[in-house]
Design a protein around this nucleic acid. Structure first.
Length: 349
DNA sequence: GAGTCGTGGGG
DNA sequence: TCCCCAAGACT
């Protein structure tokens, strides 16, 4: 096992240079609800994107009880645009469990049992909100540790070893004394100094103690397994409006891609392009006079790219059928996932 | 272990 | 334009 550098220089650096973030407590003990909420929002989501959304969410659902009591559709709508919508469903389920239990579990093991809380998030909440002596291992920590130890095994195979190395930090008394600060110090180091592309080693509190930097390979670590190409898929969606300016929407099935979110009705998304007649079989009211709108909307998902076209029609008055929902076009964007905002935009031209 | 699951910003 | 990446979890 490689020798890790001492915690003290990192904590000193953190005390001088830590980032001021909207979701980071400035005075007193952090609120477990806010720590949990921010950690879930930050899963695979940038600090910049989370900032305003955290404040907005907190204003609407100020505590666990408020969130637990809310309808799921309201939670999904508040999450719209943030992505990874399973997080919102799990967040709601977790809030109900926590409210019923009278509060958050205070240990990593207890937190880990809740929906949407995995190994990282459990450790982060335990360390930051409850002072448990654990090291949450996120992408920042993996990168920092891979460089400190000059670990050349590619991710994800290296993950267990990097986690074991990171856990070794807690043998240091200085880290054990401030587990929450130590975790956030690692995050800040990874975000501002030990960055993915061009790490600022000259500014690093651990310069001289980093095996990768001593060998000059720090920018190449951590290595990663090659990714697969993303296929291109095609879809056609339907914008049906009435004279009152309302739009026909559907709610997607609760699980899977965009689960539980609103969408414009449409065809399945498949590899081959759609002929108009073929696509219209999926129109919500196939007998109407549908016209094809010019333009194509593109959207990249994690594992495929999507091209969408839009057909439009209008009727004097709409009645929502089974699984359908009517909403005013004005302000509709806010309730939709980004992919649907993009295709809807084709209808504005 | 390998897939699935969103989105926006930066190089 | 394209690729990479971000305080990952779940199956």
């Amino acid at each position: 096992m490689a020798i890790l550098p001492p915690a003290a220089p990192l904590l000193d650096w953190y005390d001088r240079h830590r980032r001021v973030l909207p979701f980071r407590a400035t005075e007193g003990a952090p609120d477990p609800y806010q720590v949990w909420l921010s950690e879930v929002m930050l899963q695979q989501t940038t600090v910049a994107a989370v900032g305003p959304r955290f404040a907005r969410f907190l204003a609407r659902f100020p505590d666990v009880a408020a969130l637990a009591a809310a309808p799921e559709a309201a939670v999904m709508e508040e999450w719209a645009g943030l992505g990874y919508y399973a997080r919102a469903r799990n967040l709601h389920a977790c809030a109900k469990a926590v409210a019923a239990a009278g509060g958050f579990p205070r240990s990593t093991a207890g937190l880990r049992a809740l929906p949407g809380i995995g190994p990282y998030t459990a450790a982060a909440i335990a360390a930051i909100a409850f002072g448990e002596a654990v090291v949450p291992v996120d992408g920042n920590v993996e990168r920092v540790v891979a460089r400190l130890a000059a670990e050349e095994t590619p991710l994800p195979a290296a993950r267990p070893r990097l986690a074991a190395l990171a856990a070794g930090f807690m043998t240091d008394a200085a880290a054990r004394a401030r587990p929450g600060d130590f975790a956030q110090a690692l995050f800040d180091l990874g975000a501002t100094i030990c960055t993915p592309r061009a790490p600022a080693c000259a500014l690093c509190p651990w310069r001289g103690g980093c095996a990768a930097q001593l060998r000059g390979i720090q920018a190449e670590l951590p290595r990663k397994a090659a990714k697969r190409a993303r296929p291109l898929r095609q879809g056609v969606h339907f914008l049906l409006r009435d004279a009152a300016g309302r739009v026909l929407l559907r709610r997607r099935p609760p699980r899977g891609l965009l689960g539980g979110m609103l969408e414009l009705p449409g065809t399945p998304w498949r590899d081959a392009p759609w002929e108009a007649a073929e696509a219209l079989e999926f129109a919500p009211r196939p007998a109407l006079e549908w016209r094809s709108l010019p333009g194509v909307a593109r959207h990249g998902f994690t594992h495929f790219e999507l091209e969408m076209r839009l057909f439009a029609a209008a009727v004097p008055e709409l009645a929502a059928g089974e699984g359908e929902e009517l909403r005013p076009l004005a302000g509709l964007d806010a309730a939709l996932p980004t992919v649907m905002r993009r295709v809807l935009r084709l209808g504005e031209g």
